[in-house]
């Protein structure tokens, strides 16, 4: 067992973990933060994406012990985030989800895309989101939802 000190959604945490425990299991099983979903558990599906020091990472192939001194943000920690509020509304309006399993990862990746690539066209949105798999929607609703947020933010800026 190893000690690890990190922050999760702004709260300082000192925990003891098995080195093999990945960040996704640590968040769900030890911190009881179940918004983060585990799909493939080998870095392919993107469902488990969370923020580490503000950047999206796959929590299933990031060891919890390697997050020493890091700041982890899950979907629970973005409840009052303005971009996430826009994305939540847009995903609902555009049918960006059906079963909802991929949605936490989709939202984390989409937020990063909106903040990092404000000028993305639909092709760029599809490429940027290609690391998050959805088995229900066929992606069109997801792309439209992100488009809606990008366009709305462009208008507000103009």
């Amino acid at each position: 067992m190893k000690n690890v000190a990190l922050s999760v959604n702004g709260k300082k945490i000192a925990a003891t973990v098995e080195p093999r425990t990945h960040l996704g299991d640590f968040l769900r099983e030890q911190q009881l933060l179940t918004a983060t979903h585990l799909g493939c558990e080998h870095g392919v599906c993107g469902a488990c994406t969370v923020l580490l020091d503000g950047r999206p990472v796959r929590s299933c192939i990031t060891l919890a012990v390697a997050c020493e001194a890091g700041a982890v943000t899950t979907l629970e920690g973005l409840e009052n985030d303005p971009v996430m509020a826009e994305l939540r509304e847009a995903f609902a309006a555009e049918h960006g989800l059906q079963c909802g399993f991929c949605t936490p990862g989709m939202l984390i990746s989409a937020r990063d895309l909106v903040l990092r690539k404000a000028g993305a066209d639909d092709r760029a949105v599809r490429i940027e989101m290609s690391g998050n798999l959805c088995r229900c929607t066929g992606y069109r609703g997801i792309v439209r939802a992100i488009r809606r947020v990008l366009d709305a933010r462009k208008k507000t800026k103009a």
Binding site: P19, G43, I61, T62, A66
Partner: peptide, 26 residues
């Protein structure tokens, strides 16, 4: 040795690699 664990991580999860010690060099 391990850095970002983006290749080793999946291999560990799939138990294709079964080390006794990981040395994180980050």
């Amino acid at each position: 040795p391990v850095a970002g664990s983006q290749s080793l991580g999946p291999m560990l999860n799939l138990r294709l690699v079964q080390p006794e010690l990981l040395v994180d060099i980050t």
